[in-house]
Amino acid sequence: MTTLDIMLPYYGDVALMQAAVRSVLAQTDPDWRLTVVDDGTEPSVPGWFAELDDPRVSYRRNERNLGVTGNYRTCLGLVREAHFVLMGTDDIMLPSYVATIRAALAKHPGIGMIQPGVEVIDGAGKPTEGLVDQSKRRLYKPAFKGEVLMGGEALATSLLRGNWLFFPSICWRTEAVRTAGFRDGLEVTQDLALVIDVLQAGEQMLLSDTLCFQYRRHAVSISSRQAFTGVRFEEANRFFMDVADRLDGTGWTKAAKASRLHLSSRIHALTMLPGALKNKQAEGARTLLRHVAGADHR
């Protein structure tokens, strides 16, 4: 059975990154390879990796900052195995993650994507489930027990209504991702874009309820001015409209309709509006209102 490539595009908090790496080192199944691609400049990081002295761990620092998509592409180019994970720099693999994924691959060797069971944690590592995660789980995520295979327009429609996946926990078939690639001009919607492109190429996803990953969702501080500018929703509008046109072109009209409505994203923007108003982000509030109202819906 194949070794699992774990790719970690890193930029940000050193302590959280170190916790993520330690969670990989603690896997019960030792057949993995971790590659960390550092897009930052923190001086202490290279020395910390040198001290790990584990032949399964590779570390490299980019000569210049590549940004989210650039670092994703660098990681993809370094994958050597048939399947890989693009792990979040602040997420945690529970000790059974690799064992769970490799067992699933043994049963479904040609699968394009595997979404295992995920627990949401807060910045302190405590289990949490906010309104956004609750609504996605209850309203959008398909109900199942054990495992289920999904794909095609049905899965695309479900995700475009409300993206209930946890991107850093997904195991990917390498060639499927290399064929699809990462789209230019996207950051916050890059994950959903990749899934939709892979689905349109005919790949399927295995959903499992076996809990083996912790996804860290940080609380958005009401005092954070940058969080309420509405920029992320401008990108979201462009993405959903573009995807709708692409889906119409391939006959996935139900999924295209869901993309144009992008209801979950509009509700999310509505929850951000009070923060924008409190922070006196007038332009941000207008952007959020346009997104809530579906001003770009066509």
Rank of each mutant, 00 (worst) to 15 (best):
T2F: 07
T3I: 11
I6M: 00
I6Y: 00
L8K: 00
L8P: 10
Y10D: 14
A15M: 12
A15T: 14
Q18T: 14
A20C: 09
A20Q: 06
Q27G: 07
T35D: 02
V37I: 13
G40Q: 07
T41K: 12
G47K: 02
W48V: 02
E51N: 03
L52H: 06
L52M: 13
P55W: 13
S58E: 15
S58I: 11
S58A: 14
Y59Q: 10
R60C: 15
R60W: 11
E63R: 15
N65E: 13
L66E: 07
L66F: 01
G67W: 12
G70M: 07
R73P: 08
L76T: 07
L78H: 10
R80I: 00
E81V: 05
F84Y: 11
V85Q: 08
T89P: 01
D91A: 07
L94D: 12
L94N: 06
V98L: 05
R102L: 00
P109M: 03
G112R: 05
M113Q: 05
M113P: 08
P116M: 00
G117D: 10
V120S: 05
D122C: 08
D122K: 04
D122H: 07
G123P: 04
A124V: 11
T128Y: 06
L131H: 00
L131C: 02
Q134R: 11
Q134I: 12
S135E: 13
K136A: 13
K136E: 03
R137Y: 09
R138W: 12
L139K: 14
E147T: 08
V148A: 15
L155Y: 08
L159R: 01
N163W: 01
F166Y: 08
C171L: 02
V177C: 13
R178L: 04
R178A: 03
T179F: 10
A180Y: 04
Q190I: 12
Q190P: 00
L192M: 12
L192A: 07
L194W: 02
V195K: 00
D197W: 01
L199E: 03
Q200Y: 04
A201C: 06
A201E: 12
E203G: 01
M205A: 12
M205T: 11
T210M: 09
Q214S: 04
Y215T: 03
R217H: 13
R217S: 12
H218C: 09
S221H: 05
S224N: 15
S224P: 05
Q226T: 11
Q226Y: 03
A227C: 13
T229G: 13
R232K: 08
R232S: 09
R232W: 00
A236F: 03
R238L: 08
M241D: 13
D245G: 00
R246F: 07
D248M: 09
D248P: 06
D248H: 09
G249H: 03
G249K: 06
A255V: 06
A258I: 08
S259A: 15
S259Q: 10
I267K: 15
H268K: 14
T271R: 08
L273F: 04
P274Q: 02
G275Q: 12
G275A: 15
A276V: 14
N279I: 01
K280Q: 14
L288N: 02
L288Q: 05
L289E: 08
L289Q: 09
A295Q: 11
H297E: 10
R298C: 03
